[in-house]
């Protein structure tokens, strides 16, 4: 196998249908970038899930004067009710920790957390957030048992499971993830068809050469290798472009978002580079296999 000859053939092939090659590279780049985004979202969702599930609490809000719950009857929860509730909670086997948070504590925590958005702080007054028990569960999935045993007890207004709120967040994240993967899959199909077309054009352009090669007894690998490598190189360039896109989106989008919003876990360069490697390999493999399959139909012995 003479490398120089093969490289020369690849160069001729790529140059002869430059427009096709460019469109192929772009398609592969977009497909791989979306594929990588999907993978990154998946990683992100998983790691923030773990992070949040450790911190999940069930909040039991107690009756306040403004409560709309009829069983509160517009009265504050009594100290005796609070004590009874606390001991009942502590007795439950699913509960690992119970904390009492008064109105004042809740208000100052709220002020603290939203200190960067003054509009939020101004619209809330002390007493808007009622007294509550924050209950940490041994297993966040056991939420139902706890809420059932507490709901309807005197002095209880409502029980809020943070998991429910997070679920919505994760559903959105999951939706984004599958959207990215679906678009990536469509792009992959487009890329495969485009590789097929490009290689077919390339083979047609060089039918004289390949005809003579067959005639003088060049082996199939020798005839097909330039075409397959042509596809693979286009795939590689596309993959590298996808990597650049991913790096940019990490720097400009994710990191900037993370500095504004308090993200559960940061997307590290480690996972980004892993995804990049996977995306490039996948791009190259995809194109090589697609051109091989096209050639099998096109360059018969």
């Amino acid at each position: 196998m003479r490398a120089q000859f093969v490289l020369q053939e690849i160069w001729i092939g790529l140059r002869r249908n430059l427009t096709m090659t460019i469109s192929l590279v772009i398609t592969v780049a977009i497909a791989m970038a979306l594929f990588g985004t999907g993978l990154l979202l998946h990683n992100q969702a998983n790691s923030s899930k773990n992070y949040w599930y450790d911190k999940i609490e069930v909040s039991i809000f107690l009756c306040a004067k403004t409560s709309s719950n009829p069983s509160c009857a517009g009265k504050e929860a009594q100290q005796s009710e609070k004590d009874a509730l606390k001991s009942k909670l502590q007795a439950l086997p699913q509960v690992s920790k119970v904390e009492y948070e008064s109105k004042n504590d809740a208000y100052s925590r709220f002020k603290d957390r939203f200190s960067t958005t003054p509009g939020f702080v101004q619209s809330v007054r002390e007493g808007d957030i009622p007294d509550s028990f924050r209950v940490r569960l041994k297993d966040p999935k056991q939420y139902k048992a706890v809420s059932q045993s507490v709901l309807g007890q005197p002095g209880v207004d409502q029980v809020v499971n943070e998991q429910e709120i997070l679920k919505k967040f994760f559903r959105i994240l999951g939706g984004l993830q599958s959207a990215a993967l679906i678009i990536a899959a469509i792009q992959v199909v487009a890329a495969v068809l485009l590789v097929g077309n490009t290689v077919r054009l390339s083979a047609f352009n060089r039918r004289r050469e390949t005809g003579i090669m067959r005639l003088v007894g060049a082996s199939n690998t020798y005839i097909q290798l330039p075409f397959i490598l042509e596809g693979a190189i286009a795939g590689l360039i596309g993959g590298v472009l996808a990597a650049v896109l991913l790096v940019f989106s990490k720097m400009l989008l994710v990191d900037r978002l993370a500095s504004n919003i308090q993200m559960a876990s940061k997307l590290g360069w480690g996972s980004v580079s892993l995804v990049i490697i996977v995306a490039i390999c996948f791009g190259v493999l995809l194109c090589a296999v697609a051109s091989f399959l096209t050639l099998r139909r096109y360059l018969r012995i």
Binding site: R208, G211, I212, R214, L215, G217, I301
Partner: peptide
């Protein structure tokens, strides 16, 4: 077998009416 066909063709030279030069 198909993969041996190229070796057969290496032992056969071919000339055509239309020359088939590059």
């Amino acid at each position: 077998s198909n993969w041996k066909v190229p070796h057969l063709r290496r032992r056969i030279g071919c000339v055509f009416q239309d020359f088939r030069l590059l």
